[in-house]
Simulated assay, not measured.
Amino acid sequence: MESIVTEAISLIEANKISSTEVGDVLGKKGQIEGVHALNKGMFRTGEVAFIYAINNSNYEVHRQLAEKDIKGKILFVYNVNCDKAIFGDLVTKYIMLYKQARAIVVTGKLRDAHTLIKEQYPIWLEDVSPIGCVNKQNGEDLDVEEYERLKAIYEGAVMVCDDSGVVMIPKEKITGQLLTKLNFIEFQEDIWFYCLDTLKMSTFDIVCRKKYLDGELLDRKLLDKLEEFQKNI
């Protein structure tokens, strides 16, 4: 039987539900602050595999990647005190080609941008830099308690990545009600664009006043479906 996580990912992928729409479903929340798409036109969603980089060193990144199964997942690299590029084209190729990750999200910088762009890797990051981290341990490692806290937040969550940025659905939010809300927002978007393109309504009447609910502008079946969604969200 398909898990709720798998079902949610399949629903988002099949309908290309954007990070914007998912953020709306989450009550205007969930953004991974500061990251943007390196290459335009990308859309990726998937379960999160969490690792970290610390103190301008990528030693722990190499170690964790060697040990961790990230196949089919979105690799999330959490930055702890790194203002230099965490890695570049070599590690990215390892992640994408050999470890078979779905995408990379980094709360920090990467280098070798020319190659990362040329290869059209699905990467979301804060910035690029020619100056990279060292490849040996540099200062104290991440505290075990802090690591477990961060892992509990990110590992197994779902990220939706596109040109607008990245939104994360926390594990506790991945429920049957989430599926209903995702289906509802897709249906509502269809109605809104119908009202705009066909009925030539103003966005004020569509979004704020919701005049399409008055019973005269839409087919009764559409209104009934909207009402059914409203009962379940």
Rank of each mutant, 00 (worst) to 15 (best):
E47P: 03
I54S: 04
R44V: 02
Y59T: 06
I54C: 09
A103H: 03
V77Q: 03
E67I: 07
H114P: 05
A49T: 11
A49M: 07
K99T: 05
A37H: 11
V61H: 01
N55V: 12
V61P: 02
L97R: 09
I54Q: 11
R102H: 10
T107K: 10
I104M: 13
L110G: 05
I86M: 13
D112T: 00
Q100P: 00
Q64F: 10
H62N: 06
L116I: 01
L110R: 06
D89K: 10
G88T: 00
L110K: 06
T45S: 08
A85W: 10
F50D: 05
V106T: 10
V105G: 01
T92F: 08
K71F: 05
D89Q: 07
A53W: 09
R111T: 14
E47L: 07
G72F: 03
M96D: 02
T115H: 14
F87V: 07
N55Q: 11
I95T: 02
V48D: 05
N58K: 08
I117F: 07
D83K: 14
E47W: 03
T45V: 15
M96F: 12
A113N: 13
N79D: 14
K71W: 07
L116H: 01
D112W: 03
V61Y: 01
L38M: 15
S57R: 02
V77W: 06
E60Y: 13
Q100S: 05
L38F: 09
L110E: 08
K71H: 12
Q120K: 15
F43A: 06
Q120N: 15
Y78K: 10
F50R: 04
N55Y: 10
N81M: 15
I95A: 02
Y98R: 13
R111G: 15
V80I: 14
L97G: 00
K99W: 03
K68H: 01
K93T: 07
V80E: 15
V105R: 04
V77C: 07
I117E: 14
F87L: 07
A103W: 02
K93M: 02
E67F: 07
I74M: 11
A113F: 08
A85D: 09
V91P: 00
Y52I: 12
Q100G: 00
Y59V: 05
I86L: 15
V61L: 13
M42L: 11
E67P: 04
A53P: 14
H114F: 12
I95E: 00
K71N: 12
I54V: 14
Y78Q: 10
K99V: 07
G72S: 04
A53M: 11
S57W: 00
D69C: 08
R63A: 13
V61K: 04
A37Q: 12
V77P: 04
A66V: 02
Y94P: 00
K71L: 09
L65G: 00
L90A: 13
E47G: 06
R111P: 00
Y78G: 10
G72I: 10
M42I: 08
R44A: 04
I74R: 07
I117P: 04
L110V: 15
A53C: 13
N56C: 05
Y52S: 09
V105F: 01
A101I: 02
L38V: 09
G108T: 03
Q100Y: 00
T45K: 00
